[in-house]
Amino acid sequence: MLRSETSGDGERMAAALAGLAAYQAATRTAPPAEPPVAAAVGRARLLDYGGAGAPLVVVPSLINPHTILDLTEEVSLMRWLASRGVRPLLLDWGMPTPHDRGLDVAGHVEAMLLPLIDALGEAPLLAGYCLGGTMALAAAALRPVRGLALIATPWRFHGFPARTRAGIAELWEAARPPAEAMGVLPMEVLQAGFWRIDPQGTIDKYVRFGRMAPGSEAARRFVAMEDWANDGAPLTHAAGRELMEDLIAADRSGRRRWRVAGTPIVPGRITAPMLNIVSTTDRIVPAATAVRRGRRLTLGLGHVGMIVSRRARPTLWEPLAAWLLQQTMPR
């Protein structure tokens, strides 16, 4: 990818390699202390960030760790929300094993997310990020919730550019045999898929990092974000197959043919208030993939930047908190 994206530009190639070397050698800081566990179902846990008020179940994607929502002590949507009158409970999907190979995306909702919601004993607020939003939407169709917030959530998968979908199909064709053999789809394969979505941006970010002052706030944030992006549990084989074939290729959710717990998930049947946060500059989950329901909040930040960038707090955190609190007021 580096060769193709810097062909004929040796200076840019050298700058990207220098940035990569600087990233590899950068000093890491300890991650935030993990909060206590409020409930657990199998390998899945709800991490309790304290606070007061109505419980807010936050559903991250199955891809990449949940820690993007609690990146550092200073950059943590969860810890910030806990200081704003809600009680955030962050779902950690845990580490799948080959024994989980038959658990697809819908199965994660059925076997983990719904029982965790039931364990609370009351209707919670529900929020989902990326594929976690797709799963949270399904949960909101099957359980009563106070409100549903979707953040960069794909639902109409035909909204991905044709080139992106073709590249992902090619990637899955190559990855399917080893995934079937191992029972899981490794994170490294998924990361390669993300690189295909925006190869130029992948190179550019290392060029920019190489020019940052070592140890600066911007450099520390970059390292934490990249460590998160390059980490994560594998997907179960069934989840990888359902994501690649049923959702991305066949768009079953967008065509109202995706079933969870035997029920077709139809967003229009959800009666809870819905906040739909999308970005016009998100290349990972383009705005065209968003469900056409609820109150829409349109941003101009990248897929990860909307959660952890310097602009995230005034642009996403604050309006999200205001909307969540509004759903807990007496009607």
Rank of each mutant, 00 (worst) to 15 (best):
Q24D: 09
W172S: 08
E245Y: 01
D251R: 12
A40Y: 05
M1I: 12
A162F: 03
E11G: 11
W228N: 08
L320Q: 07
R28G: 04
V58C: 11
Y206P: 02
A166Q: 15
A139N: 08
F157L: 11
A238E: 04
G232I: 00
A14Y: 09
V75H: 07
L46P: 02
G300C: 02
R211E: 15
W258C: 03
A14S: 15
R146D: 10
R101C: 07
D282A: 04
L114H: 08
V105A: 05
A30T: 12
A250M: 09
R143W: 12
M78N: 01
R156H: 15
R292E: 15
A192R: 13
P32M: 06
A229G: 09
A119W: 01
N276L: 10
A321M: 10
W80H: 07
P267S: 05
E170P: 00
I284S: 07
L297P: 07
G53W: 09
R283H: 09
R43N: 07
V266C: 06
S279G: 06
W317Q: 04
S309E: 04
S253M: 14
A14R: 15
E318Y: 00
R269K: 13
A149F: 08
E34Q: 15
R311V: 01
R163C: 00
R220F: 00
D48H: 05
V184W: 02
R196G: 15
S76Q: 03
P96F: 07
Q24S: 06
G159L: 10
R43K: 15
L116W: 03
A30D: 12
G210Y: 06
T6Q: 11
E5V: 08
L2C: 13
Y23A: 12
C130K: 01
R163S: 14
M13L: 15
Q24Y: 00
S4E: 15
V285F: 02
W155S: 02
R79K: 14
A18Q: 12
E242G: 05
M1T: 13
P234I: 06
T72D: 10
L324V: 10
S279I: 05
H108F: 13
V57T: 09
T6F: 10
G19Q: 07
V59L: 05
W93Y: 09
R101P: 02
R3T: 10
A119K: 08
M13H: 13
R257M: 12
M225Q: 10
A136L: 13
P32K: 03
W172I: 09
T236F: 04
E11W: 11
G133F: 02
D227H: 05
R259I: 02
W172K: 08
G302D: 05
A321L: 08
R256W: 08
E110F: 07
W323A: 11
P88E: 13
A16C: 13
L275K: 11
G53P: 10
K205Q: 14
A287M: 11
Y23W: 14
L150M: 14
G85T: 11
Q200T: 14
P273I: 09
G128F: 07
